[in-house]
Nucleic acid binder design. Structure first.
Lengths: 245, 245
DNA sequence: TAAGGTCAGTTGTCAGACGACTGGTGTGCC
DNA sequence: GGCACACCAGTCGTCTGACAACTGACCTTA
């Protein structure tokens, strides 16, 4: 059993190993509680050194796929069989998320404006009291049906162009990336709420029903907050999955 | 800088190291993008070997707290500063979760019965068509207010006692643990819904409002599903946090 | 001046060794 | 015969030392 197809160098050996072990568990149809090959067997199988193998195994231990008993061996854990395709903990844009549900959404910009950061927005984006932010209000539609009502805030300084020169109809993350502020992760909270009455009245959304609200602050790789968002997902159209451990 | 207070052996060295590095980042007030000490420096600092250190660093890489550039060094990532206290991805009983929100909940058993598994329940618990399950319906109350409406299903075979000999007023997980079926993880989905009308009518919950529904299948360490649950959390009382990356 | 080579610093990988823990086996004592 | 204990093989935990590969800066040279 070799690791990479000849020409593929790709990533670091340890990550390849980790995936190879996952594949091995799948191919051998190992069930939770089953014993894994020993370190010695794995190193021979993949023809790699023990430290490299151990780093890969440690990764699997950390995410709970396997567990180890000193002096006995390593064993498949329940987690290994509980792969959720695309959990809520995966960072992605609303646009991509909606598409994944099989929708072909169109975006409708309700309003784009500039204002002074305050309260929740100011705090999340770590701004001074008098800092300007862009306020973007959009609807994600599937045909005539509103799927998500999105309210985004971005520090004005990140986008030095005129507001009307920017295409707000696509993914906000793409816009930010084009200005060198690509968000890569976020902290978020989820709650179940009704749409704010002013929003539902203005947009004829009285029948929107219970909304799945994700309040999210997105950060760049170097830790700078670049977006504060409140996304109201139509409850009857979205279900979010995840693993708890 | 030593690792453990003298008498503390506790866990494996690598895990101690991981936490020590996290502490180091905190103490030195390293910000995202800052460079970490080299492997050589760390091994001297903690007086441990390089393989052990590398395993610890790999763990931090995996969860995104740090990133590495071959030939340059390791750097603090944004994730390191985004610690969420108790994310939704942490497996815990509804009882514990509610307590964490500062409530002192009382449990009210609405009904306990036995029925034949079917549909969603049968599928989640991987049961045959004619298998018996326990159906447990409860309310978590704070004073007179209902916080959560819980509907649980457990394979009958896991609890060989008479239903009325069991105390269902506490954590269901505790009951299962006492029979040797402690759940340790789960797969779950979250959605925003209204309470089923029969539930709200029977329990006088017409004003419950939008509910945060967590549909969860819990598993033991060896991968056996032991609980299928639908927990309707009062939307105005609960917010769930998590990190996306 | 610009292109290229060289070198120190850092991470990636390898090899071999010994310590620590687990479970089973066998022995000796009662 | 039964029980307690010592021993031993198997496995994971940790250490030491070494070399390869990559990065960036410096130096040399055309």
């Amino acid at each position: 059993m070799s690791l990479t197809s000849p020409m593929r160098d790709e990533r670091t050996l340890v990550l390849q190993l980790r995936d190879a072990i996952i594949s091995y568990i799948g191919e051998q149809e190992l069930k939770p509680g089953d014993r894994l090959p020993t370190e010695a067997e794995f190193t021979q199988m993949f023809n790699i050194s023990r430290p490299a193998l151990r780093e890969a195994l440690k990764l699997l231990e950390q995410d709970g796929s396997i567990y180890v008993i000193h002096g006995k061996g390593r064993f498949v854990s329940a987690m290994a069989t509980l792969a959720v395709e695309r959990p809520i903990t995966c960072f992605e844009s609303v646009t991509d998320m909606v598409r994944r549900y099989g929708y072909k959404p169109t975006n409708k910009v309700l309003s784009i404006s500039e204002e002074t950061a305050a309260g929740q927005v100011q705090e999340a984006l770590r701004l001074n009291a008098d800092t300007r932010v862009i306020r973007l209000e959009r609807l994600r539609m599937q045909g005539e049906e509103v799927l998500v009502y999105c309210l985004d805030f971005v520090p004005r300084s990140l986008i030095p162009d005129r507001l009307y020169d920017v295409d707000w109809g696509g993914s906000l993350f793409d816009v930010l990336e084009s200005y060198g502020h690509r968000p890569v992760m976020s902290t978020a909270t989820a709650a179940s709420v009704m749409l704010p009455t002013d929003v539902s009245e203005r947009n004829d959304l009285e029948d929107f029903g219970p909304a799945f609200l994700i309040t999210e602050t997105a950060y760049t790789q170097d830790g700078a907050p670049v977006v504060f968002a409140k996304d109201y997902h139509r409850g009857s159209s979205f279900t979010f999955s995840f693993v708890r451990k």
